[in-house]
Design a protein around this nucleic acid. Structure first.
Lengths: 249, 249
DNA sequence: CAAAATACTGCAAAATCTTGCAGCGCTTGA
DNA sequence: TCAAGCGCTGCAAGATTTTGCAGTATTTTG
């Protein structure tokens, strides 16, 4: 049996039972517990599950916590969110995609700002619901467990009926030539629809993501009107974007 | 049993009952009280609950519900939720309206139960997202701040396209003659649409709400197939419903 | 205050983890 | 073809964690 197969099996078992025991898996696959232990170690590093003493548990196992969730490079994302705030004017209609950067933006929206906010993201909707002057409209559809946004035909359909002032499009990878890319096909479809539903597309993007590339393409860089990073405007990483008719903040 | 599992179980129990006894938990899980004590110590350190003499309490509990009245009502809702669980079968498609009773139901859905779950309620969607075997489909639309469910044409439209096996319709007021009533017009529209989208309508309802009346009518009692209360079946409060062709649990 | 319940401490057995190592099969390149 | 290199796997020794128990301290309750 191939290592790949084995790990796939483990992921599957965790998905079904929410938890597994080292000894069970080793037994079922007729390999030593050491091998399974190593597999689980790798899968843990790859964030496919959570390794615990004696086995492993599913990541989404009872641990959803919109407020307490750990956000990586929070500092950078905060800076980006602050810059993004400057683009929003009272009375506008905006669209927030998922992602922790946009969640930070949502958190920082001033209480007195009047807005209509569309979003397919559950954590962002929860956050916005606490703001009295913001009308929240949730894009319905099937909820994807890992990204916590709605996806699928129904959601895309709902998007096709709107045209908002600004879309803040959380971005996993942006590349000067290849544009915006994603690793999840369903999210690609959602983001395409979001771009289509917006007059202006803003891409908040921490510097780590600049120049990286994923499997599927969302759109070219030319579709993005504004790019926001935590970097200073003269940073060399941004050079490649400077003659692309994009506003950089 | 893994330590992780045990601790998740404890967190869950605290979430449901707001308080737990060391001995109860040790009994249910067949481990020594020392083990549970140590778990609770860790969870306390991780600020997941508050350790007290003899057990633990939920963190928000002491702040939000000092009187204990809320718990009492929560106990009733828990009983109702437990009864409601019996109506759900593996593989079904269900629809959960908003309300705390349905939230309790959502929280109690067993992790191994496979379901497709439609809901317009934000808290319920958050709860369900943590369950791996449940496909969550969110009914999109404008989010109402106080009820935390989506309302309006878009949501009703989405409802019009589905037909689920069972709808659990959280109920504010139920009256033997006047049927189900609500004080919010928009929610009335939503609930009407939900009834229309379901083969079977179940109304979980704590006894305080029986016999009360609100401004707008959702439907007559005859549209409800099953009514669930925390009362015993022979309670006098239920007499008025007994010749109305409703199953009472 | 006294009895009962609960908490803490140290300890020992069992399970599990870590680490280093050797055997095995596969690939690579002379 | 064969030797070297590499990754995967299982094994073993020692470290670490987990768990239950017993004895003692502390808190609760009547």
């Amino acid at each position: 049996m191939l290592k790949e197969e084995r790990q796939q099996f483990i992921i599957n078992e965790v998905g079904i039972h929410n938890r597994i025991l080292l000894t069970d898996i080793a037994d079922q696959l007729n390999v030593s517990v050491d091998t399974i232990r190593r597999d689980i170690k790798e899968l843990h590093a790859a964030k496919q599950l959570k390794k615990v003493h004696g086995g492993a548990v599913s990541l989404g196992f009872n641990n959803y916590n919109p407020t307490g969730k750990k956000i990586y490079s929070l500092e950078k994302k905060s800076q980006i969110a602050e810059k993004a705030l400057g683009l929003i004017k009272d009375g506008q209609v905006i669209l927030l995609s998922g992602g922790t950067t946009n969640l930070e933006l949502a958190r920082r929206l001033p209480p007195k700002l009047k807005l209509t906010c569309f979003t397919p993201s559950l954590p962002i909707a929860v956050q916005l619901l606490g703001k009295n002057n913001i009308e929240v409209i949730f894009i319905g559809g099937r909820l994807s467990k890992d990204s916590q946004i709605t996806v699928g035909g129904s959601a895309i359909n709902m998007l096709s009926e709107i045209k908002v002032d600004i879309c803040f499009l959380g971005t996993n990878s942006i590349h000067p030539m290849e544009g915006l890319t994603e690793f999840d096909w369903e999210i690609v479809q959602m983001k395409k629809a979001m771009i289509h539903s917006s007059r202006k597309v803003v891409s908040p993007c921490i510097s780590e993501k600049i120049g990286s590339l994923q499997r599927y393409k969302i759109c070219g860089v030319e579709e993005v009107d504004v790019m926001i990073t935590e970097l200073e405007p003269w940073d060399v990483k941004l050079d490649a974007f400077k003659n692309l008719n994009i506003q950089i903040l």
